[in-house]
Design a binder for these strands. Structure first.
Lengths: 253, 253
DNA sequence: CTAGTTCTGCGTATGGTCTACGCATTACAG
DNA sequence: CTGTAATGCGTAGACCATACGCAGAACTAG
């Protein structure tokens, strides 16, 4: 009758609570034949093999030899499953920065670890993010990133903003390169031929007098040479770190 | 029998070609009762009113008083419709930078224009981007952005990278603030109460000794005060522009 | 004026999605 | 042994995109 009020407003889904180890199995009833981690692992396996679009409740159930609806005893909804997939998909964070590393070296290492995860599991990019991180490993990644800034004189709010800036960049860059790979596979051409083909198409569409800057970019052949995607990533990351460095220097002075 | 080969590899969908004005109506057959722009406008109207999730082919058809399948005479697939929705959803680009503006002022103006569009139409963030821009207004935005860098000594490739960096940031920032708004609406609480509630939840979950840096951020109350989202946006944008400024200075020297 | 051609509108049907609900079965507490 | 509660899961409902085929409209060629 009385509303069951928890301490704080938004309620954590049961499956997430169990990911934090906050849930004990009630003693009654038949023994569960699956577990949340089993299901999440199966879903991750499907996503690794056939992409996020292949992850349907029935497909995951088939992977486990169970019935579709059986899964709903463990996860409250597909969205909840996706959240847990992200958590285990990222895997453990890279650990705190080495003692001898300055903030820039530390963040660079952290950024490359994040980058590597997204390169290995591009489906992570297709999971619609529905809120700030609340799963254990997600927060672990955040923690390790924040630690890189421990020795700086930035305010706590600035540290989080900085980290947000970097994660956003990494995600974005990964998204773009993943799109090129997926797009080329869909079009049935070599990944290296994707951007040149795009370049030709745009060149055919635009009027050079109305799009002079764009035309100059195309004429320079920027999109035709397939440079190392890692160089592209490094370029943007260094720009951002330069910007942060300027801020840190100003704060230190 | 012989494959109808166009000049270049990837074929532009018919509806996109018509957006470039490259398509003339065949003289035969009954007069079309709708047009691609009519349909796209209706779809945008639905998205503006009820979000992207409400945009289904049948819902758009209902909006037009037509049958669902009638739409497929105009657009090849829902994905194509989405692409066109993004094009008209963005609207016309902000125009080339004022003559007296330096690159930084120009890009700042451009960034705020982009930001403003995404604030007004958050559903744009939910459209899965499936490739580089190919629609007229998208490329128009790119053009106007590139022009801001006309007077710099950056290489063409660097200009595109710089623009990519900025668009990525804007999109990311907009995504985050939109999530807070949508999340608070879903949870039925004030938008200003979202982050404090999140803060309390995380504080309850984490062990301060395993998450010291994160704990310090929470203890500082970073997430509790609801600062102006515009300040947050400005902060990140300035960091990025600082980084670009460092590059430009190095290139000019 | 007529015949042929081609395009439009759209009804029907297929195969997919998530998930609410209810029932039989199982396993433990007392 | 009985009551209770949790599990596995079958059924069914409400959506979704879209392949296909057909009736009719509007033009062109003769």
């Amino acid at each position: 009758m009385a509303a069951k009020t928890d301490d704080s407003g938004p309620v954590l889904p049961p499956a997430i609570e169990s990911a934090w180890g906050l849930r004990d199995r009630p003693p009654k009833g038949p023994r569960p034949q699956m577990s949340v981690p089993t299901i999440v692992d199966a879903a991750v396996r499907v996503a690794d093999a056939d992409g996020l679009a292949a992850v349907s409740m029935s497909r995951v159930a088939k992977e486990l030899g169970a019935a579709t609806m059986a899964l709903y005893r463990y996860v409250g909804s597909k969205d909840e499953l996706l959240m847990l997939m992200v958590d285990t998909g990222y895997g453990p964070p890279p650990g705190p920065p080495p003692a001898e590393a300055d903030w820039r070296a530390g963040l660079t290492r952290w950024a490359w670890a994040d980058h590597e995860v997204l390169r290995r599991r591009p489906w992570l990019l297709h999971v619609p993010i529905s809120g700030p991180p609340i799963t254990p490993q997600q927060l672990g990644w955040m923690e390790d990133g924040l630690r890189c800034l421990d020795d700086t004189t930035l305010a706590e709010g600035e540290k989080t903003s900085v980290l947000l800036l970097i994660t956003g960049y990494i995600r974005n860059e990964a998204s773009l390169t993943a799109q090129i790979i997926e797009g080329s596979r869909a079009a049935g051409i070599e990944p290296g031929e994707m951007m040149p083909a795009y370049s030709r198409m745009v060149a055919r569409l635009i009027d050079p007098s109305r799009f002079p800057a764009l035309h100059r970019v195309l004429a320079a052949g920027v999109l035709d040479q397939d440079d190392d995607p890692d160089d592209e990533f490094t370029f943007g990351l260094d720009r951002i770190l330069d910007g942060i460095e300027a801020l840190i220097r100003r704060r230190a002075a």
